[in-house]
Design a protein around this nucleic acid. Sequence first.
DNA 1: TAGCCTCGAGTTCT
DNA 2: CTCGAGGCTA
Length: 698
Amino acid sequence: MTSIPATAAKRADELHAILHEHAYKYYVLDEPSIPDADYDKLFQELQALEAAHPELQRADSPTQRVIGQVLEGFDTVVHTVPMLSIRTETDTTAGGAQAFDARVRRELGLAESDAPVAYSAELKFDGLAINLRYEHGVLVQAATRGDGEKGEDVTSNIRTLRQIPLKLRGVSAPVLEVRGEVYMRRDDFEAYNERQRALIAAGAKNEKTVVNPRNAAAGAVRQLDPNQSRKRPLSFFAYGLGDVQGWTVPATHGGLLDALDAMGFPVAKQRVISLGADGLVAFHQAMGAERDKLPYDIDGVVYKVDSRELQARLGFVSREPRWAVAHKYPAQEQTTLLLDIDVQVGRIGTLTPVAKLQPVFVGGTTVSNATLHNEDEIRRKDIRIGDTVIVRRAGDVIPQVVAAVLERRPPEVAALAPFDMFARVGGKCPACGSPIERREGEVAWRCTGGVTCPAQVKQAILHFASRRAVEIEGLGDEIVEQVVDLGIVRTLPELYKLGVAKLNELERMGEKSASKLVDAIERSKATTLPRFLFGLGIRHVGETTAKDLARHFGDVDKLMDASVEQLLEVPDVGPIVATSVRAFFDQPHHREIVEQLRAAGLHWPAIAGTASDAFRPLLGKTLVITGTLPTLSRDEAKDLIEAAGGKASGSVSKKTDWLVAGEEAGSKLDKARELGVAVLDEAGLRALLAAPPDAAAD
DNA sequence: TAGCCTCGAGTTCT
DNA sequence: CTCGAGGCTA
């Protein structure tokens, strides 16, 4: 054909250079250098150029990331240098690091008086190990680990990963194999699943959600259709080498990681060089604490003897290097058997399915129960009694049933119908036998029994007695359970008829605890109007709304007689809350309860107007408390703030004036920093209460 | 009407 | 702590 115009070849070279550079900044350094639209324009220019002059096509061109031929299967790749596994230290305490150091020193024949060994410590990612082969600086092949000897050729899928350079920066050795971990970030995992759920909801048949980031990454890499693979955004971290020809390997592992970084690979920032075991212990602990906050999953950390010379001296035992060890953390995910699905009845009558699990140790504690939220959730995940399920306990302390392991579902379980709440409880509340209903637009089934349902009565009593309501110390589930089951207490006011003699009939209740409880009940009679209103358990009326209502109406009678219109005048009360309050007091039964409680002796001080003479330095200010304060409890701090005229809210926003942060402050502190909200410690709060800065009062 | 800000409700284990 | 939903505001 015609020879390529020199200008076209030159322009293609320029575009290669520019696009590689920007892609590196964007995907590896995470520092975009030009707007996306500009990048796209340059990219399209190169595509056009290559289409016009196919001779300009090169394997390392940025355009080569987007190709999509469905493969028949994967070719087998024999690793020139086997991909070994690393010995796992299962002792998850500090002892694991010390044991490794001791082994290394013994093998090297070091005496106690000899200098400490230098180690390199890095993260152990929960992903898929990959070998990337570069010839003359250009990516020619990517292979999975496989059995360590032979893996699969997944080049076309790996090419689509933007974090993997198609061309090395500054290295053109004949052969350089780089090894690392392909993984999926947690946010990418969530986003992917969300998209899949939307597709499934829209009726797509062949779409599936994935269980965890690791499986998602492994699935994407081994996906035969690169177009499918491309939909799952994967990331990469480099940590080692395979075959090398014509390149001088740095003398230390730390030096190698720096070199990989310089070649354009992402290398995890979290790594240290430690002399002796102490630094390793510290690293293990520090990363353990940070684990939940990392944007990706790690299952431990890896220690390596830093010097290559020492590595060579240590050698291997049965295919595992003696100079490296993986030091794990307690698993955040485990599989266990779903023994049963219980149905619990909540305060408002909500039926909640609860998974009864064969106890498993996960995330540091033994888990035997986990909520399944509601019927739709169970059906979406298709979880059935008798399934092997995956249980996770990550940053969010509360255990979750993630999914059922379908491959391990016994045939008799597969023959069962999917979970059906109505059928499971026979259409009746498991506590009182009243019919259950599920209203339009709601996800929850509810018991219609109301006050006749013992489960709801128990919850109502516990709520009334709780710390934030009228507070009856020592009245917990055990006692409420017995007292309701025995029919001693059927309504709230009957609590106040309990005497020592009656209480003595209960199990595990002696004279002494009985009289203590009677005292506590007596003490609870002196309360406040907001606490009393909150304690009644009106739907949509929590602590804050109870305070608003108390302030506006001043006493219960006015509130009980208030029309919906009058209720709407209360700040932060809208149609839903107003209707709910009105409906509550429209039931004669509820008015009776209020009367009987007052007759039993419950009383509260009249609401004083605005205490204008009081010192209210925080008037109009919003504060949020997080973490553990040195001397004040959360409630005490809250009371102090409110007494000073301020508002103690639960979440940080632009409108927050101060965040009061104690020990182990978490996401709220991050958010406050992000929004530029002022942060105080307990001393700072006290200073504010004593003498506020004048400027802030304006 | 959208988007922000709060509040309410439900939840596990030690 | 987090989700969902109610209320308010630009």
